[in-house]
Nucleic acid binder design. Structure first.
Lengths: 167, 167
DNA sequence: GCTTTGGTACTCGGATATCAACTGTCCGAGTTTTCCCGG
DNA sequence: CCGGGAAAACTCGGACAGTTGATATCCGAGTACCAAAGC
């Protein structure tokens, strides 16, 4: 039950990309530098987000990443699923059907109660993640950012490293 | 985001131990045989459950494991925490404080909004697991077990392999 | 026949190899820019 | 001076090692039982 650290990086990157103006992009190298993480490794997750349709890419010089959707339409669940994959954390191995003197399969048409309970908990977990969008995260940062220093650091960096593209 | 397979084994074993009569115990070897899993590996998890106070052990010949609590007082969360450990799946690396031109620490007294949201989801997940007890699981099995075949297989095995102990 | 005592066999407990997944890195395909040459 | 073309450089994309945690296993410590010997 360990969540990939790439999840955190991915969410931070998406949050930052949400601060870009229309037509701006940010390269993976810039995102990695700003967050102080490995560029190559971050690239892996950015690709996953791109493949999931959350980010859009611009190739070539002056290229980079930008959001493909509105911040309010990207939830933490979307990002998590893009990085970790859609498989549930708990997978029933049907050990109730193993061991000596197994019963005929017709007795196990109903799903295992244990698996059902674990999956129910996971559904609630995902539902909770789905409730929070990137727009909410951005709003949350602004709420505790009295003098605008945190947001200022981000916009300063964007002003230095963002590239204008013809869209 | 992969949940240990030992979790499933542990829950099944606790469920089975809940079917024991007062003063009975079941050895780790018997539990492993019944579920068709590696005895040595299962033992590791049974020790964790024992260390967490969920199971009680009886050493020596005719020894084994039994529940240390009433089935209704053992939740799926208790078992999960005993096996996986109490550490949350998401761990904030505070990458917001890394990178160039870091801000003074006083700006980061408020917890990271991303970490808060992820932890909130995890709290809901755990809360859901806490709602389901082993007694509920047992009741669920009985509810779909029309002719008692599933429960019968368990009680038959217990009749063969359980040991009476002087408590 | 009863008690004691030693041995034995079985249990759990912890320390030890093996494997998969996450982490981190590298090189290749593609595209835009840009410079240079010709008109 | 302007347009076209080719080279170059920078981007993303996917394939390749290193390290940590999960999986599987083994051997050792401890205890209850049992049998045999002594009283």
């Amino acid at each position: 039950m360990k969540l990939s650290e790439g999840i955190e990086q991915a969410i931070h990157c998406v949050t930052m990309l949400a601060g870009l103006d229309e037509g701006q992009v940010l390269s993976a190298a810039a995102l990695a530098e700003y967050h102080g993480v490995s560029a190559s490794y971050l690239l892996k997750h950015l690709q996953a987000l791109s493949g999931a349709g959350i980010l859009a890419t611009m190739p070539g010089p002056k290229g980079g990443y930008r959001l493909a959707l509105a911040p309010k339409d990207v939830s933490l669940l979307d990002i998590t699923l893009a990085i970790e994959g859609p498989a549930p954390a708990f997978r029933c191995a049907e050990i109730r059907q193993r061991g000596p003197k197994p019963l005929p399969g017709r007795y196990f048409q109903a799903p295992c109660g244990i698996a059902s309970a674990m999956h129910a908990a996971e559904r609630v977990y995902r539902s909770e993640l789905a409730k929070t969008s990137i727009a909410d995260i951005v709003a949350g940062v602004h709420a505790v950012d009295d003098d605008g220093a945190i947001a200022g650091r981000g916009t300063d960096f964007i002003a230095c490293h963002a590239r204008q593209t013809g869209r």
